[in-house]
Design a protein around this nucleic acid. Structure first.
Lengths: 199, 199
DNA sequence: TCGATACCTTACCCGTTGGTAAGTCGAGAT
DNA sequence: ATCTCGACTTACCAACGGGTAAGGTATCGA
């Protein structure tokens, strides 16, 4: 992987997360990198493909995180727990990825015709497979397990993208209050799913 | 309220929900109405103000729904329950409002500097006040109650905007599976909040 | 040394963008 | 009958959008 290529993806990811696909121009991204927009077009061909590459990279990073060495040695339950804990941690410290993810969720229904499949599919299905090897979930249908996974990942994302609004509405004090209450609540949600109480 | 004015707001709301602020052009909205874009500019001055007017109208509709006659006669607990149930019902049947709401949540951090306050503030605070009159919540801080309200409303929104993706990923069967499981789960969430188990 | 290839630039194109200026047109009031 | 005002329209604009064409330059294998 080229160095500039990754730098372009970094800048693009940040800006797409902040302003959405239509809110960002190629010239805008290029400017922050000190290159011309044709450098981007050289690497990615079109704006759509650049956007797709950003999503691809994120998808792969999610999959890599799930297949990370330190998780593979664990029991499925603990693997599931540990991964989602990490996920929430990453979302809290840097919400830009979640903003992009949710934007894509919104835009997907327009772009769905063009794209063959949703870019998060592989990751979500992999996590679903982990859940289905957990005790108490072997009998569940794929759809049930998928729903549970989707809702957990969604809860973390929604929490992450709410930070600026909650800070703006409740002040820092209000935001800290929700932060304190959300992490343990998320743990409860995970446990509820693992104990098959939720679906 | 003029008739065309409301028609413009209708079309704008739909399109902003579908493609976001930057994804929609004034000419685009005008075309669907069979007028020129200058008609929109005549009524609203700028694109930003048109967008703001759309949000204002939604905010007022939320407040009206909360202050509806049939809710006022109920006990606070049942009022809270009943309103959120209705909210989920409206979100399920027409998700466009929720898409706009979530988009605004994402864009808000950029627009926050310009807008004096978030457009959903009044509504969320009104609902928070209802919760605070419920048994078991009188002692809670404003922030705690607000967080609980925010998470409930957020859960309904996130569910609503997920429909196309879930249908795309799991097929109609998968989507129906989550639909069946979500409504009762949402009820449990409401009850958990009312019983002060959650925060 | 030569050619090819990857990487990037300058120059240019044209449709679209939000917005302005200046009218048109009909209804109501005086 | 005229004046006014709100609700539009046509005509226009400068800036910006993504994208193309063509050229320069460094690297590298033959």
């Amino acid at each position: 992987m080229s160095d500039t290529r990754n730098q372009i993806l970094d800048a693009a990811e940040q800006q797409f997360a902040d302003r959405g696909f239509y809110g960002v121009s190629l010239a805008n991204i290029a400017e922050t990198l000190g290159v011309t927009k044709q450098a981007l077009l050289h690497h990615f061909g079109t704006k759509e493909r650049l956007y797709g590459s950003v999503l691809d990279r994120i998808s792969k990073e999610f999959l890599n995180a799930l297949h990370a060495q330190h998780l593979q040695t664990l029991e499925p339950e603990e693997q599931f727990r540990s991964f989602l804990r990490d996920l929430l941690g990453r979302s809290s410290s840097d919400a830009s990825r979640d903003r992009l993810l949710v934007r894509e969720l919104l835009d997907n229904r327009e772009r769905a015709a063009e794209a063959d499949a949703w870019y998060m599919r592989d990751f979500l299905e992999a996590l679903t497979r982990v859940l289905k090897t957990c005790c108490g979930w072997q009998q569940a249908t794929d759809a049930e397990a998928f729903c549970a996974v989707y809702q957990l990942v969604g809860a973390a994302s929604y929490y992450a993208i709410s930070e600026p609004t909650l800070t703006g509405l409740g002040g820092e004090k209000g935001y800290r209050a929700i932060t304190r209450s959300f992490a343990p609540q998320f743990e409860l949600l995970i446990e509820a799913v693992l104990k098959q109480q939720a679906p």
